[in-house]
Design a protein around this nucleic acid. Structure first.
Lengths: 168, 168
DNA sequence: AATATATGTCAACGAGACTGACATATATTG
DNA sequence: CAATATATGTCAGTCTCGTTGACATATATT
């Protein structure tokens, strides 16, 4: 209905580039469109793996991240976690509370600084973290198949190079 | 206040693994925790690049994806786009409408099948797509620095291997 | 003529992020 | 010791972007 009769204008706008090479026209200007898209699809599928498992506990991806990092670095403080996830404490609060209430994470008053709450996974928290990591790990190993150790190191270097500079 | 005096229980729960190697204990079981985390940080920083630009137009990441794919594949239908993004049409509707209303995307009735709405970027839509891709592309090239053509191909193969099987 | 398909739209909802303001316990500092 | 700073928690409201379900319209297909 609306917007159909502006076809003429649309074509007049940029006919050459729109039809130049028939299909994809964005392999231009040296922009890494292919890698950009590959990253989008790879990451989307990568994070979809744990979703089924999370749904069983009624959790989401936010819970996944928390359980993961606390398992990776037991004893980290709330501030550490906020810094790692780059979210606000209000945002973390709900998720963390649910994980504590459900018995996946425990908070311990800091032995030196009693204002701190050091975070530890419980046994089931660790189990959950591993269960969530397992399908992702299998996907990674599948993607690594047929690659030399050098090539695998290149992938790791690439992923590190994609990150912002870290303060720590 | 609550949850602090269960420390004893927490420690009794799993003392060996929690303290075995001091810091990170999750390099266990052959799980690819390092790559999992590297992907998390890499992707988070990667998508943060365009956010500042998007904020200027009042758009979000959903708009980014639409402008990107329509620019990459001009003339794609709404169904194509839904299939690519793996979201519902109701979810796409708002975002697409805003982009059309703002003059970044045009809809053209399909010449063969008049039920279809083929999607094209306008000149400013293309400009936006390129502006958003540019910092991401620079980040990718930075991560590629010092890598051989073989290693770069390995990265591309890895990202492809991380994706689910595609129908098309 | 009946049915299927492509798209659009209304309404309600949920996850997960945000800002702003304020409370409490504990450390640090003047 | 008093004042201030820090770590954490919490209440309230908002935003983006996804969801499901139901229904409408135009066009194709059978």
């Amino acid at each position: 209905m609306k917007g159909n009769d502006i076809f003429a204008q649309s074509v007049a706008d940029e006919p050459a580039s729109t039809t130049r090479n028939g299909d994809s026209l964005a392999d231009d200007h040296g922009v890494e469109f292919d890698i950009i898209e590959a990253l989008f699809f790879a990451y989307r599928d990568f994070i979809s793996d744990p979703d089924a498992i999370l749904a069983l506990s009624g959790f989401g991806r936010a819970h996944h991240r928390v359980v993961h990092f606390v398992t990776r670095q037991p004893g980290m403080t709330v501030a550490d976690l906020l810094d790692t996830l780059k979210i606000t404490k209000q945002s973390l609060a709900r998720v963390l509370k649910q994980l504590v209430d459900s018995g996946y994470i425990q908070q311990v008053t800091g032995p030196e600084d009693r204002r701190q709450r050091k975070l530890y996974p419980t046994r089931s928290g660790r189990a959950l973290a591993f269960a969530l990591a397992e399908p992702q790990s299998r996907r990674i190993n599948r993607a690594f198949e047929g690659m030399s150790a050098d090539e695998r190191r290149a992938v790791a270097r690439f992923l590190a190079g994609m990150q912002n500079a870290r303060d720590a």
